[in-house]
Nucleic acid binder design. Structure first.
Lengths: 101, 101
DNA sequence: ACTAATGTTCGATAATAATCGAACTATCGA
DNA sequence: TCGATAGTTCGATTATTATCGAACATTAGT
């Protein structure tokens, strides 16, 4: 399996990040990842088809929000906390503070 | 002229805010408003037709980002800084820190 | 090898959103 | 009241995005 292409920190674009977070499914994924620090794609589908989830994960990856790493037959996803905080200080905190709603 | 309908702070939805900010035109408007603290719609069109701008301003209003007030024949727009900071601490700062790009 | 499990990719369809001209509204000033 | 200015609303068109089934790829275990 070839590794995924992830943007570097200096390639992050705020507009793309907002676009990624403007979907409820993806916002939910990000919040979940904030709690567990690592999760497979399958753990996060809410009964949604795999192809849909794959689509959302790709957008999150392309925006720089999520890192995906193949681990055997599974794909582990993590929030790119440190890099996001470095590039967009306060952004992640603002998102996650809302989790309590 | 009837006053605009603006959401109250507790009606703000993060997802809607992100959706509003995911468009380059609107992100530009927000950043501009952050600098000038007040501006008319006309000042912010970049040659774009008025109907398009009106559309973008409405989305920004509905998300709670911008307050619009009729002032004579003109409409003055302001960033709802305090309310945004109250509801989404850190968010605005993260957006505006990026302005220097 | 064969099988099962996890995701990805492809292609089609449906749903959302952006864009813009034209007609309309409201306000100010002459 | 007439004209000019600033925005809004409407309707149509185009462009983006989401959704999902089906076929494919990769890895682990037997």
């Amino acid at each position: 399996m070839r590794p995924y292409k992830h943007p570097t920190v200096d390639q992050f674009a705020l507009e793309r990040v907002f676009q990624a977070l403007s979907d409820p499914t993806r916002l939910e994924i990000v919040r979940h990842l904030a709690r567990v620090t690592e999760a497979t794609c399958g753990e996060l589908d809410g009964g949604r088809p795999k192809s849909s989830m794959s689509h959302h994960f790709r957008i999150l990856r392309d925006a720089g929000l999520v890192h995906t790493r193949g681990a055997g037959t599974v794909h582990q996803n993590t929030l790119r906390r440190d890099e996001l905080n470095a590039r967009f200080p306060g952004l992640l905190a603002a998102i996650l503070a809302q989790s309590a709603d």
